[in-house]
């Protein structure tokens, strides 16, 4: 992983035509863009992402900014392409999968060692996509694309404060699908649903369970 300051140089190098630099930018930024797009346009995300990248490749030399700027710029392009598609199809952003399917998407498994695999990327994106659009976008742009509230606000055409509120609400809604935090939780609720609480999440909870 390249440090962000290093990526500033990579952006500059790519602007001067350095292929390796551009490849690195693509590999670093594409997952975030693609996942953001999956929340917006579901199964069309890959097409829209490649369209966005063609534009990025074409216009990169007229872009001015550093790595932070690049992330914001590319997210803007991706969003515009997604909105073009939605307008053309006259539809609204939709979730990629109903939330009911989450248990299937997550690799439900009792093995604690596989904790990290219990929530798959697909399942996580489906969960976020089930939020109202503004909340889903706020969460994705802030957490996954890694933008700050002000930049996210610019992309969404909203104030930074509104973005913050939307992100909080989104996270709170997501959290509401989980049982309350571990210390307040009676042990018997633990195994009610594979998705809701597949594993214990903190060292404290784990210790408690061992007793």
């Amino acid at each position: 992983m390249v440090a962000p300051e290093g990526l500033d140089d990579v952006v500059r190098a790519a602007q001067q035509g350095d292929e390796a630099a551009f490849r690195l930018l693509y590999r670093t930024q594409q997952p975030a863009l693609l996942r953001y797009l999956r929340v917006l346009v579901a199964e069309d995300a890959e097409d829209v992402a490649s369209e966005a990248w063609l534009q990025i490749a074409r216009d990169l030399r007229s872009f001015s900014g550093d790595w932070d700027g690049f992330r914001g710029w590319t997210a803007t392009i991706a969003r515009h392409r997604a909105m073009d598609l939605l307008r053309a199809q006259r539809r609204r952003p939709q979730s990629s999968a109903p939330v009911d399917h989450l248990t299937e998407l997550s690799a439900a498994d009792d093995t604690a060692d596989r904790a990290m695999e219990l929530v798959t990327t697909d399942a996580a994106l489906a969960l976020i996509a089930s939020l109202p659009q503004e909340q889903a976008e706020a969460v994705m742009l802030r957490v996954v694309v890694g933008l700050d509230a002000a930049t996210t606000g610019k992309i969404l055409g909203r104030r930074a404060g509104a973005v913050r509120t939307a992100a909080y609400r989104g996270l709170r809604q997501l959290a509401a699908r989980f049982p309350p935090p571990a210390p307040q939780r009676p042990p018997e609720q633990r195994r009610t649903a594979a998705w809701n609480n597949p594993v214990t999440n903190s060292a404290a909870a784990a210790l408690k369970e061992m007793r």
Binding site: V119, T121, A123, F178, P179, N197, S202
Partner: peptide, 12 residues
Amino acid sequence: GHPLDQVLAAAT
């Protein structure tokens, strides 16, 4: 330590 850690980690 919140369960959402996992969701966001999976998303990223």
